[in-house]
Design a protein around this nucleic acid. Structure first.
Lengths: 195, 195
DNA sequence: TGCGATACGGACCGCCGGTCCGTATCGTCG
DNA sequence: CGACGATACGGACCGGCGGTCCGTATCGCA
């Protein structure tokens, strides 16, 4: 199966829809962006949107993939402290801090993305990637068998709706959130590796 | 305003709807229970359901309130280790374990309950209550200023969709989940109080 | 330049949460 | 005990959602 190539107009439409969707999600609240709205904002028929992305979840996922590409690259192959070269007890807080900052900058998108709805966020490739990365780093940090759960728990601490709540309802500043998170993450990591 | 009293039939309907809803949520998956289904399962018109609970969120909240009453009482005024008499470093793991077990027993209800949807779960009175309880216990455990965030982070570790994922996708047993959680919670609590 | 394959658009579908109002029931008071 | 005002009931109804379908327009290869 040699990748049947895509027609030029299809590629153009796909791009237009992604751009429009990104703009809409940035501007408005979570569930307020309908597929209809995306389609007409992109200057495209509804059918085209669904042809390109299958369903709502597909569009959201494509959006996430595109938006996080740079950050993921920085973590996967960049320099310390984010990259794989850094020692775990530096890398883990750095990665979580970067992820938290990123979610703070892309709140509305992530609020939608992590909405349970049909498929839980835990099945999405995006979550799985972060979890695996974190788990592997944690596994170098002594508590091998528990690394899997700890990775989940740490990621849960930076869930979009929690962060939004801290910011909006509890009135914390971005730096306060980052600070609390940093302290918390350090408290979870084993003490013996602390030097 | 002397509480205008309710008519007998209204009370009966309310009860019938709660019973029916509880049964439906226990049986089926999360988003698969429509208000229409609840109404007809309760042998009642749709209007009656909305009259009694205002909207979907109201019904869900009433359901949660009713279902967790016993557990909340045990935590608020019961004996150690759950009750307020227990020392924090025993009470906190006990409370989280109890909460996790409870969510394991009421998965589908909690999956619906914690769905972001309109209002985030963090604004619900139920969440606020658990958070306050946990925060107060944590505050007796040294790290005063951070207690608020730590309470959020620990509660995030027992979110319904995470627990469901561990159980369903990762195939952990109930006891494995409780064990991982216990170890994790202990790692978060300050070491100095460890004896 | 012609023609098969592909993509486009928007009318259309079933269903959802939520509203509305004519009708039936309640409970109080004479 | 009968009658009447207040309250609750039920289900037709509404706007809008995610998703489908198919006649039509466009693409790109020969």
């Amino acid at each position: 199966m040699p990748e049947p190539r895509q027609r030029a107009d299809a590629v153009r439409s796909r791009e237009a829809v992604l751009d429009a969707a990104e703009a809409l999600f940035a501007r408005s609240g979570p569930a307020e962006v309908s597929m209809n709205a995306v389609a007409s904002a992109a200057g495209v028929g509804k059918g085209t949107v669904f042809r390109a992305f299958t369903d709502r979840a597909g569009l959201l996922q494509a959006l996430a993939e595109r938006r996080t590409a740079a950050l993921r690259r920085a973590v996967a192959e960049g320099p310390a402290p984010l990259g794989p070269g850094a020692p775990p007890h530096e890398r883990i807080p750095a990665v979580l801090d970067a992820l938290a900052r990123f979610k703070l900058d892309n709140q509305s998108l992530y609020l939608v993305l992590e909405e349970a709805g049909a498929a839980s966020p835990y099945r999405s490739p995006s979550y799985t990637w972060w979890h695996t990365t974190l788990r592997d780093s944690l596994a170098q940090c002594a508590d091998a068998g528990r690394a899997d759960f700890v990775a989940h728990a740490l990621l849960a601490a930076v869930r979009a709706d929690l962060i939004a709540h801290l910011l909006t309802v509890e009135g914390l500043s971005v730096d306060e959130i980052r600070d609390r998170l940093a302290v918390y993450v350090r408290s979870v990591l084993p003490r013996d590796t602390h030097a």
